[in-house]
Design a protein around this nucleic acid. Structure first.
Lengths: 203, 203
DNA sequence: CTAACAATACCTACTTACAGGTATTTATTT
DNA sequence: AAATAAATACCTGTAAGTAGGTATTGTTAG
């Protein structure tokens, strides 16, 4: 007889969490807690109820499941964390590993795979389901440096070169250089295209 | 004893569809068909199996559930269609009504609400769950005209004023005027901000 | 009917972005 | 020790976008 495993599902999509709960329930898991209204105050709730396993959606509106993963691992280093995402982008998986997650699964996979994965993670394995299909320019994305990714995030939020330079305490020239290198690497020609690209590829 | 209702779930997120299937199954629904690999060839499949109710996700990667709704309503005018979406934006709900859907529900609602909704829709009602919280500048969005929305879509995809003008057979001046009016209405100052805004608010 | 709105088009002055260079410093790798 | 990559910074010329106007036409609501 296996020992009981307690789960916590963190997802602002109740319908998804409700369905997921039923899937896991079939498998004999209990003490199933669901968290929907994911706010920063969720961190406080963490200290009240500890689970053996946390299943966390990455795309949570305001917050990122990647950050919550870090917070949970800090509080409960022995707890298992599985990240779930709408998209299976390499950079998300990479970041998930960095943040100490025990597993990653895209929402495009099915219930049986999740169940198998949960069992393996609870047994101590780490299971990262890699992308099953490439997104547009995967190679190009890999080429980008840390600093360039940082610049992209700022461009994406609508900032001008001037504003980015101020924020990062850099020269405008430097920011423009980074910007040009980014455009060259991604084979784009304007900042507008870059923003569209970044959103489309969830950079 | 109620007559049996057949369902079809259209969603590229298997995990969501699997969970949803279990939620609906509890309610005594059967002939449950799930469609995951949603491609344009799905239209062909439609002619093979007819359901009483179609539950369709709007965000399907390449395709839009809004389009599939139209196609289903054309083939089976008597079939019920419920749209599901990650976001409860007014423009999506509006478009859903236009496209003949019988209901709309955001993923943030829970299983019990969905069940109630399914029952009501099958009974002939139309049920549109409106947004329970406002997104950033809801009033501003309403102010936008059809043409302005069209321009936004093109700006959003990274096109320049010149390219937009060519595509719409307009003068560059005209496009610039629209652009300025959009920025004024949304209280933004650059195209970059507009793109970021459009993506963030799923315009 | 007429006031308001939407869509169209033009103008000038100013700001920001882009293309295509060069160049220095630091850290890492061979 | 030399080569490579990353991050930094600068320059010039050209292209594109923004601010703040004006103005005409057609349609719609009061």
């Amino acid at each position: 007889m296996k020992k009981p495993i307690s789960f916590t599902i963190v997802d602002d999509h109740r319908l998804f969490a409700d369905g997921l709960a039923r899937i896991l329930h079939e498998d004999g898991a209990f003490q199933l807690q669901k968290v929907h209204n994911v706010t920063q105050s969720f961190i406080d709730e963490l200290s009240q109820v500890q689970s053996d396993l946390y299943i966390i959606d990455i795309q949570l509106g305001e917050l990122s499941g990647l950050d919550i993963c870090v917070q949970i691992k800090e509080k409960y280093p022995e707890a298992k964390v599985i990240l779930i995402s709408m998209i299976q982008a390499p950079h998300l998986i990479k970041q998930g590993r960095k943040n100490g997650a025990d597993g990653f699964i895209p929402k495009t996979t099915d219930a049986s795979i999740l169940k198998e994965m949960v069992n393996r993670v609870c047994a101590g394995e780490t299971v990262f389901v890699e992308r099953d299909e490439e997104i547009s320019n995967p190679h190009s994305i890999e080429l980008l440096t840390e600093r360039e990714m940082e610049i992209i995030h700022l461009v994406k939020s609508g900032l001008t070169t001037r504003a980015i330079a101020d924020q990062l305490f850099l020269s405008e020239f430097t920011v423009e250089t980074h910007r040009k290198n980014i455009l060259k690497k991604l084979k784009l020609s304007t900042a507008n295209e870059l923003i569209a690209y970044a959103y489309a590829n969830h950079l």
